[in-house]
Amino acid sequence: MLSPEARQRIESLKTVYETNQSALIPALHVAQADQGWLSEETQREVASILGLTAQAVRQVVTFYTMFQQKPVGRHLIQVCRNLSCSLLGGQKLQKQIQDKLGLEDGETTQDGRFTYLSVECLGSCGTAPVLMVNDRYYENVTPQQVDRLLEELK
């Protein structure tokens, strides 16, 4: 169940846009911030607040990789797997993180601390390789930085 605050924020988004369909992506961000991920139940709640069909919401949730359809750990690590990052060591970083955490792509550690995802371009090719932890960017990442990062994030 969405918190009353999240509900309230989604309600207020309805006044910002011309149609409720346009408020969908911001509303899903609010819901995901509130719940950590977007369960089918959460999606139905958003649909009913905005007066949209479950199909209309599901199409958007499944289209955008920034919306999580499974529960994620406290720290969601997303590593870019596109060209620039791959040329500059991104693939090594991916393997390093996966080996260290013992995770396949998309999996979460038992203790709920980390979720690992490889993703398409993060839009920062000039500072490749790039990864994101939750909303924060890490640029020109080295293997040493990854080790340190995994230690620091509790």
Binding site: R44, A54, Q55, R58, T62, F63
Partner: peptide
């Protein structure tokens, strides 16, 4: 009626029903 939808993206895109 919105009974069947386009889901996911890229080469994973498919059509299907929801829930």
């Amino acid at each position: 009626l919105d009974e069947i939808a386009v889901l996911s993206r890229g080469e994973q895109t498919y059509i299907g029903t929801v829930d």
